[in-house]
Amino acid sequence: MSALDSYRFSARNARAGLFNRVLETFVVWNEARLTRRALEQLSDRELNDIGLSRFDIDRIGR
């Protein structure tokens, strides 16, 4: 493999790695958003049953 081919392969891997990190960041953010949304639908009593308060919801995933 020539040096040029090796460089192209490395650059392609770097772009794929960056894309994967961006995608993973988005997935984690979206899961936290969906969790917060679901918790916001619970009553104060239900939140208390699982050991959370309304204040705790805002801190999830941040």
Rank of each mutant, 00 (worst) to 15 (best):
L42K: 15
S2Y: 15
R37A: 14
R21V: 08
F19M: 14
V28C: 03
G51D: 14
F55C: 00
N48K: 15
E40H: 10
L42G: 03
T35D: 11
I57N: 00
L23Y: 12
I60G: 01
F19C: 06
G61E: 07
S6Q: 15
V22I: 13
F55N: 00
I57K: 01
L23P: 01
M1Q: 11
E46M: 13
S43K: 09
A32H: 13
R33W: 08
R12W: 08
L34A: 07
L39F: 06
E40D: 06
R15P: 02
I57S: 01
T25H: 15
E24C: 04
S6E: 14
A3H: 13
G51F: 12
S53A: 07
T25R: 12
L18P: 02
G51S: 11
N20C: 08
V22W: 14
N20T: 10
L34C: 08
A38E: 13
E46I: 06
A16K: 11
L34G: 03
L18I: 08
E46G: 02
A3D: 14
Y7S: 01
W29R: 02
E46V: 03
I60C: 02
D56E: 03
T35Y: 11
E24A: 11
R54M: 05
G51W: 13
G51C: 05
D58L: 02
Q41R: 15
R62Q: 04
R33E: 12
R54V: 02
D58Q: 07
R37W: 14
A32G: 01
G61C: 01
V22Y: 12
R15Q: 12
R62P: 00
N48G: 10
Y7A: 01
R45G: 10
G61N: 04
N13L: 12
A14R: 15
S53Q: 09
R59M: 02
F19Q: 13
D5E: 07
D44I: 05
V28D: 11
L18D: 10
F9T: 04
D58N: 05
S53N: 04
R8L: 09
L23M: 10
R45I: 08
R12E: 10
D44G: 09
R62Y: 08
D58W: 08
L39N: 04
F55A: 02
L47R: 06
V27K: 08
T35R: 15
F26E: 05
F19Y: 15
N13V: 05
E40R: 10
R15N: 11
Q41A: 13
S43A: 05
R21L: 12
R8H: 06
S6G: 06
L4C: 04
S43G: 08
A3L: 14
E40L: 09
N48W: 15
S43C: 07
I50Q: 04
I57W: 04
D56Q: 00
R36C: 03
R59F: 03
E46Q: 14
M1T: 13
V22G: 04
R37Y: 13
Y7M: 03
V27R: 12
R33M: 07
A3S: 08
R21P: 03
R21W: 15
G51V: 06
Y7D: 02
R37L: 12
L39R: 03
R15F: 10
D58Y: 06
L34D: 06
R45M: 09
E31A: 04
A14L: 15
S6F: 15
D56M: 00
S43T: 11
I57A: 01
A32R: 06
A14C: 10
R54S: 04
D49N: 10
L4S: 05
L34H: 11
